[in-house]
């Protein structure tokens, strides 16, 4: 193993005895992050048990929990997620794929940048939410609408990240490539790709989070199935427990996708992160 991690281990283990002492203060410190959720939960349950607020406004936490179990058992959540993930998968693949191509062209060629840059930036100014009503008129509630909107949401960040990464390949490295007379293939494989992959990947991460937002928006406003729709459906039934379960699922899936990509991102930069 490398020298640094050994050194770090030694520092951490210098006071093993001290670390094991559980003073009241230390316990308090450890439990502190749980205090707010706990207080909220207790207040919430009390308010619900005392019927201070109607169930249509604030369902008791236990009801939310049983609803969650019911929705998982009944398959509503799994079915909804299957639809949602299929949509985001296709949309993201189209958007990110075409974004990589346009981004690389914008980054590598001044001509493409001159002719297409302005148009791209103008269109990128319009948020996904703005595209939605236009696309709704064109495609209706069709599945195509979801793919196009998600593709658009992932397209923009991918293009920006890719073109910027290519433009920002350090000039000193380009000079080295010239001095070493690198053939085009090595130039791309040994310089352009490794230098741009970290930037492009973090762009893809942004793109996926934008795609996720677009998915939720389109499912809440213009769909008949999917996680977002489940929430809106719960709202129209005045079943706030379903709404809350939906929010938790959305949060968890979003978090899982982002941490997954962040892991891969770290690995891609191994030459920097791990000396």
């Amino acid at each position: 193993m490398n020298v640094r991690s050994v050194a770090v281990d030694r520092v951490v283990d210098r006071f093993p005895a001290v670390r094991r002492i559980w003073t009241a203060r230390a316990v308090g410190h450890r439990l502190l992050p749980l205090a707010i959720p706990l207080i909220v939960l207790i207040a919430w349950q009390c308010a619900a048990s005392l019927r201070l607020l109607p169930v249509q406004i604030l369902p008791p936490p236990l009801l939310v929990a049983t609803t969650a179990i019911d929705l998982i058992r009944g398959g509503e959540i799994v079915d909804g997620l299957r639809v949602s993930l299929w949509r985001i998968g296709i949309g993201f693949a189209i958007g990110a794929g075409s974004g990589l191509v346009l981004g690389a062209l914008l980054g590598l060629s001044r001509t493409v940048e001159a002719y297409c840059g302005l148009t791209f930036r103008l269109l990128a100014q319009i948020p996904s939410l703005g595209w939605l009503p236009i696309l709704l008129l064109i495609f209706g509630l069709d599945e195509t609408l979801k793919f196009v909107l998600i593709a658009k949401a992932s397209f923009v960040p991918t293009v920006i990240a890719t073109s910027e990464s290519v433009k920002q390949i350090p000039a000193p490295f380009r000079e080295v490539a010239r001095v070493l007379q690198l053939p085009a293939r090595s130039y791309l494989r040994r310089l352009v790709l490794p230098a741009t992959i970290p930037g492009i990947f973090s762009g893809l991460r942004t793109a996926l989070s934008h795609a996720w937002i677009a998915l939720i928006v389109v499912e809440m406003l213009a769909a008949t199935e999917g996680v977002g729709y489940t929430m809106v459906w719960g709202r129209t039934l005045f079943q706030i427990d379903i709404v809350i379960v939906g929010m938790v699922v959305i949060g968890l899936i979003g978090l899982a996708m982002d941490t997954g990509l962040a892991r891969i991102e770290q690995r891609l930069q191994h030459w920097e992160a791990r000396p």
Binding site: P172, F173, E175, V176, L180, Q181, L182, P183, S186, R190, L191, P194, A195, W271, E272
Partner: peptide, 20 residues
Amino acid sequence: DHRLFPWLTLTENITLALDA
């Protein structure tokens, strides 16, 4: 500044100079 490519090992960096 040495301008070695950070993603290549020492050997790979030097071999790259013979690529052409």
